[in-house]
Simulated assay, not measured.
Amino acid sequence: MVHGENPQSHFIDTSKASAARMYDWLLGGTENYEVDRNACAKLLEIAPSTQQLARTNRDFLRRVVRILAERGINQFLDHGSGLPTQDNVHEVAQRTCPGAKVVYVDNDPMVLAHARTTLDDNENTMVLDYDMRRTRDIKRASQALLNWDEPIAVLFVSVLHCLPDADDESDPAALIRAIADDLAPGSYMVICQLVSDDPLVRQGVTQLMADVTGGQWGRVRETHEVRRFFDPLVIEKPDLVDVIDWRPDSPPPPPHLRPTDWVEWGGVGRVRKTKHP
């Protein structure tokens, strides 16, 4: 069921590209429009490895959810969940832990439309129609399914580059701190985003995505900026890395076969603190 719906979010605007629909196309999906495919073509001109990175990122998501479920985590809060594809978070988690509960957060109208038809028969899932920066509302609404006094895995997988920097609580780093403060000891946060050492790639992609999405974009960052997101957390081994190197199931590609334009970079942080009464 979709909760917290905003009637305005039901309108699918096909005059602008959507990051969720572009990601769907990059993964080989069909839930996208010509405007999204055209935007992807322009994106690939700036960063040719983008399609490879989308698939690498999806593999990382499957891997990290499976590993956390194997550790006994049975609650997941997935921000910017995107369009359904194979092996969504609840499917991966529930294979290991059949009773795992998953709350998806997204406000893309096409994502919500699919959620209404595909998740209604799964009583251990919930979809929240919220901007991911509304942390207080998300916590309140998710309590219908999740127990915040027990460990939760909070996912920000390839989504923080959609958020701009800010001087208030909507800033990505501030958002991470606010959620970490609310989580029970033993919780995890999974964070990764697109980064580049090349200023032309950072500037070119950031400007393109802002243009094609009508401003629904943040920016491509550098690795040291993403590391700052983990300040409230204890970083799990193997530290923060290109996600293809995060506990891979098979040998990752050698350096000469790696993308040189940009990478998906991040890792997993653990909440370790004593909650105040």
Rank of each mutant, 00 (worst) to 15 (best):
V2S: 11
G4K: 11
E5K: 10
Q8G: 03
F11C: 06
I12E: 04
I12S: 02
T14I: 08
K16S: 07
A20Q: 01
R21M: 03
M22C: 12
M22E: 01
W25M: 13
L27C: 03
T30E: 15
N32K: 05
Y33S: 05
E34H: 15
R37T: 14
N38S: 15
N38R: 15
A39I: 09
L43T: 15
L44T: 15
S49Q: 11
T50M: 10
Q51R: 12
Q51N: 08
A54D: 04
R55P: 01
L61Y: 00
R62E: 01
R62G: 01
R63S: 01
A69E: 02
A69C: 09
R71M: 14
R71T: 14
Q75Y: 00
S81K: 01
T85H: 00
Q86F: 11
Q86Y: 10
N88F: 00
E91M: 02
Q94D: 00
V102D: 01
Y104A: 01
V105H: 01
D106G: 02
A115R: 00
D120K: 12
N122L: 08
N124E: 10
M126A: 11
D131L: 04
R134H: 09
R136L: 07
R136S: 09
I138S: 05
R140C: 09
A141L: 12
A141H: 13
S142H: 04
Q143K: 10
L145K: 13
D149I: 05
P151M: 07
V154I: 08
V154N: 06
L155Q: 03
F156E: 04
V159K: 02
V159P: 02
L160S: 06
L160A: 06
D165P: 13
E169R: 08
A173L: 06
L175A: 04
I176E: 02
D181N: 11
D182S: 10
G186W: 11
V190F: 00
L194M: 14
S196F: 08
P199V: 04
L200P: 00
V201H: 09
T206G: 07
Q207H: 13
L208Y: 01
M209G: 00
M209A: 05
D211L: 12
V212D: 02
R219W: 04
V220F: 06
V234F: 09
D239Q: 15
L240C: 09
D242R: 10
V243Y: 03
D245P: 15
W246Q: 06
D249Q: 11
P255K: 14
L257E: 15
T260W: 03
W262N: 13
W262I: 08
V263D: 03
V263H: 05
V263K: 05
E264N: 08
V271D: 03
T274L: 12
K275T: 06
K275R: 11
